[in-house]
């Protein structure tokens, strides 16, 4: 934030020198860059954005101003990026929701993911863990599915709202495991955790970092993780895919990506992608992300494009299932 004042002054100076409609050329970046984040300062997506943009600003030789525009599950951040007058020096980092499920869940979204957004790079992913209270009768996934399968709605699970990662993952799990669970929406993981510990509800999917300390304190236990490989932040937790009758390709991950408006010069996207991949390969950056429960990712813009398309399809099918139930 120290940067912001300097950035504002530099921005003023830069703008008075250049024409606003300046064509992109080798001189990019010639002015401060703006990165919109659809979550408040201090939140996990915000911290992740700062971990990446700090070294990125050094590489670009221009300050980067983080603009927190929280609201509507991150959608407002993306909208604000697209509404900015200067579409060459404005970017955003976002979680998966605004790019995959928002078109289904948010009326008047105001943007078309395929047409308006240019993917830059996948920044990080986070698996989810299935959490139950420490005194839950079953100790493994098979026992859990058996308990859930006794009758429809035998178990109740908490999520952080309709269409949230926790909700969709639980529904994907129910579908693949052939059970029906009762959905109880909350507004934060903290509330879900309290309700599980207080035996108000039975289970929930959440980020490992949100659950681990309660596991150590003996209040919660984890029955499985939704990633393809075991996760360093959840040691000893078995991968769910292929277990207890779940298919081998069972996977559910939250992710965070760096995106640009579609009007951005392809050369700029290439530069950014190269720089971001170099940053993500750094051990110190990977460790900072891991401490927050994120696994550093990376890859080409096309990889991100594929990920968006794939998740839109998977979660779209889950949403169909949810809507059909109502």
């Amino acid at each position: 934030m120290i940067m912001s004042r300097r950035a504002a002054l530099l921005g003023a100076a830069a703008i008075s020198l250049c024409k606003p409609a300046m064509a992109q050329d080798a001189s990019w970046p010639s002015q401060p860059q703006h990165v919109f984040v659809g979550f408040p300062a201090g939140s996990s997506p915000d911290l992740l954005a700062r971990i990446v943009t700090e070294p990125l600003a050094d590489k670009l030789g221009q300050p980067i101003v983080i603009e927190n525009k929280p609201g509507a599950g991150g959608v407002i951040g993306v909208q604000q990026m697209l509404n900015a007058k200067d579409q060459q020096n404005t970017f955003a980092t976002t979680i998966n929701g605004p790019l995959t499920t928002a078109p289904r869940l948010t009326p008047n979204l105001g943007y078309d993911v395929a047409k308006d957004i240019a993917p830059v790079a996948l920044l990080a992913t986070s698996p989810l863990v299935l959490v139950v209270a420490a005194d839950f009768p079953a100790d493994d996934l098979a026992g859990f599915i058996k308990a859930a399968g006794k009758e429809p709605d035998a178990l109740a699970y908490g999520s952080v709202g309709k269409g949230s990662g926790a909700h969709l993952t639980a529904e994907l799990f129910s579908d693949r495991a052939g059970v029906e669970m009762l959905h109880i929406p909350f507004t934060s993981y903290a509330e879900v955790t309290t309700a599980i510990i207080g035996n108000e509800i039975d289970c929930g999917f959440m980020a490992p970092s949100a659950a681990m300390q309660y596991v150590q304190a003996g209040k919660l236990k984890i029955l499985g993780i939704t990633s393809e490989k075991p996760f360093a932040k959840a040691p000893g937790v078995p991968v769910m895919a292929g277990q207890a009758g779940l298919p081998d390709d069972f996977r559910a991950e939250l992710w965070n990506a760096f995106i640009a408006p579609a009007a951005t010069d392809p050369a700029v996207i290439k530069t950014l992608n190269t720089d971001i991949n170099a940053i993500l390969a750094d051990d110190a950056v990977q460790k900072r992300m891991l401490d927050m429960g994120w696994q550093a990712a990376g890859g080409s813009p096309e990889d991100l494009q594929k990920r968006i398309a794939q998740d839109t399809k998977v979660w779209g099918a889950v949403l169909d299932r949810i809507n059909a139930k109502q």
């Binding site: 912001s4 004042r5 504002a8 002054l9 921005g11 003023a12 703008i15 008075s16 200067d86």
Partner: peptide, 15 residues
């Protein structure tokens, strides 16, 4: 706001 609290808001016309 701009100098004391360092709010992210443009000070002059532009962007």
């Amino acid at each position: 706001f701009s100098f004391g609290l360092k709010m992210t808001v443009p000070l002059w016309p532009g962007r």
